[in-house]
């Protein structure tokens, strides 16, 4: 996993509340192996019409936002299914951070596991960032994870983050390898459990 420390990038707004993971990646693409570029499936059915024609007004199709690495989401962003491919699609498209008032819990977990930062900011802050992005498409935002701040021309906001998620992101932590350093604790737990069950 690539560490995440700081990021400066344009931010692309996805303004609606309750954008679900079926929108982020439709179910028919879930049988693709991880090694395949999932960026091509990102918002597939919103981004293009059924005949395959790109919808020019969809944010990802707008020139200033094509290379954006920060996504701005509405309330309850990425709610719905546990499909990790929702994160893979965003990551492969180039996104390294999302900023939203709230997330589907499983998406937020999956995001950290893949090195993509999911920042929670109050709704008015996200609204201000979205308004700025609409007013000046391509305007850049700075995210500083060690300092836990988001800065744009519209202002600076601090955000909270779980210390463990922060550490994982900063170090690009391999969680399974880390957990297995606690193997003796797991074995001791299993031993206790076996004894209690006799």
């Amino acid at each position: 996993m690539q560490p995440f420390i700081t990021l400066r990038s344009a931010a692309v707004p996805f303004a609606r509340a309750n954008i679900d993971t079926d929108q982020i990646i439709p179910a028919r693409f879930l049988s693709r192996p991880r090694a395949i570029d999932h960026g091509q499936f990102l918002f597939h059915d919103l981004r293009q019409a059924p005949d395959g024609e790109q919808r020019p007004d969809f944010p990802l199709n707008r020139l200033h936002w094509r290379d954006a690495r920060i996504a701005l989401g509405g309330r309850n962003f990425a709610c719905g299914s546990s499909r990790e491919s929702a994160v893979w699609a965003m990551y492969d498209h180039g996104f390294r951070a999302v900023i939203a008032p709230s997330y589907g819990d499983i998406f937020a977990n999956n995001s950290v596991k893949n090195g993509m930062l999911a920042v929670v900011l109050p709704r008015d802050a996200v609204d201000a960032l979205m308004a700025e992005a609409e007013a000046t498409p391509g305007a850049e935002i700075d995210i500083d994870l060690p300092a836990q701040t988001v800065t744009s021309a519209a202002g600076t906001w601090s955000f909270d983050i779980d210390p463990y998620a922060k550490k994982s992101l900063l170090e690009g932590l391999d969680e399974l390898a880390f957990t297995l350093t606690h193997e003796s604790d797991i074995a001791a737990f299993e031993h206790r459990m076996g004894r209690d069950n006799r």
């Binding site: 546990s82 499983i106 977990n109 596991k113 399974l176 957990t179 797991i186």
Partner: peptide, 20 residues
């Protein structure tokens, strides 16, 4: 509760999961 693929691999490999 439901988990993602990376967590499924983590549970398969360690039978445990980190949670807050």
């Amino acid at each position: 509760f439901g988990i993602g693929s990376t967590e499924v691999a983590h549970v398969l490999g360690s039978q445990t999961l980190w949670q807050r």
